[in-house]
């Protein structure tokens, strides 16, 4: 089996980081800040001037610079977006009551990934958008990158990128989670120096597509299905939870992670939770922000097995095991 992995990754977070109290004062929370604080959140990251495309550009530039990668080396770009708005350009400020404004139907054909390819001179790269999976989109892009690298010998480097920003004025609280803006990018290659992809697994339950009206059912569905998906991923990887050194989470509430850890029988100490409070849930970049920070903090040793799990509307549960 061809060894494929995440050879390098980086992320971008907006500088503006309002506290829960500040967000509550601005009317940006659905419920009291104290509830979110009790669930482990402290502050969000909010993009004030930068668009989702700006964040994607910045992240990819940083990644190429950090890894001394020439733009010509990128063979394929997989651009993941959790929000529908992330797959279009922001063509005009959205009027009050709207979350996206398109001036002309031709605006539908203005794709962020094409602009990114052009502006960053990724001249050898073909591109594709990965969306309609909520926060699980970036996991799908990694999965598809791996599949492409296994299937197509001429593809050597796949750039996976994800960037999402909530519309201005939108509530920062979604189902008892504090939502941040942010972006991540990674290079997926054969024979990686680190983060070999051991197994990936995804379950989609389209019955819950109407996320707005099924909030309670979605909360209830989350836990047992998450447990099943994690179990199935471990089986695919041929390992057990005991073999996992770190759980690299999506930054939904710490409370929900404590419950899920209880469901799967995983010690709390294995959860890399440092970013949940200070970063919040960045929609589609959490796990890879956390992977980078855990790496930079020196917590990961070569050979460590890592469990990454995320959940996206749609509904989608995604999980992967990496060997650092």
């Amino acid at each position: 089996m061809t060894r494929v992995g995440i050879d390098a990754l980086t992320y971008y977070l907006p500088a503006y980081a309002p506290t829960l109290a500040e967000l509550e004062a601005r009317g940006a929370l659905r419920g009291p800040a104290s509830t979110l604080a009790g669930f482990g959140f402290e502050r969000a990251r909010v993009a004030e001037s930068e668009s989702h495309v700006d964040m994607a550009m910045h992240t990819v530039r940083t990644l190429l610079a950090e890894t001394d990668t020439s733009p010509e080396e990128i063979d394929l770009v997989l651009y993941a977006g959790a929000l529908t708005s992330s797959s279009t350009m922001e063509c005009a400020p959205a009027p009050a009551g709207s979350v996206l404004q398109l001036r002309d139907f031709m605006d539908f054909f203005k794709y962020p990934v094409s602009q990114l390819q052009s502006e960053l001179d990724l001249v050898n790269a073909s591109v594709a958008g990965i969306d309609q999976q909520g926060c699980a989109a970036i996991f799908s892009s990694v999965r598809l990158a791996r599949a492409t690298l296994v299937a197509e010998p001429d593809v050597r480097t796949v750039l996976c990128v994800s960037a999402d920003r909530l519309p201005h004025g939108a509530s920062r609280e979604v189902v008892y989670n504090l939502v941040s803006d942010g972006a991540c990018a990674m290079l997926v290659r054969r024979e990686p120096k680190r983060n070999r992809i051991v197994a990936t697994h995804q379950v989609t339950k389209g019955a819950f597509w109407d996320s707005g009206s099924l909030e309670n059912e979605i909360i209830a569905a989350y836990f047992p299905t998450a447990r099943n998906v994690i179990g199935d991923t471990l089986r695919k990887a041929g390992v057990t939870l005991d073999d996992i050194r770190w759980v690299i989470p999506h930054n939904v509430s710490l409370r929900s992670w404590e419950i899920l850890l209880g469901l799967i029988g995983c010690p709390r100490e294995k959860l890399f939770s440092a970013n949940i409070g200070r970063v919040g849930h960045t929609i589609a970049a959490d796990n890879f922000i956390n992977l980078r920070d855990a790496t930079d903090a020196g917590l990961l040793r070569p050979g460590d097995l890592l469990l990454l799990f995320t959940f996206g509307y749609g509904l989608n549960w995604s999980c992967m095991v990496l060997e650092h």
Partner: peptide, 28 residues
């Protein structure tokens, strides 16, 4: 696509119940 409920330790179940109470979600 409703999953079979997870069978959990009492401690985990109580944490879930407490979370629902704190969230004030009346249906749950």
């Amino acid at each position: 696509s409703i999953a079979r409920p997870a069978i959990v330790e009492l401690e985990t179940y109580e944490l879930f119940v407490r979370s629902v109470e704190e969230a004030g979600n009346q249906v749950l």
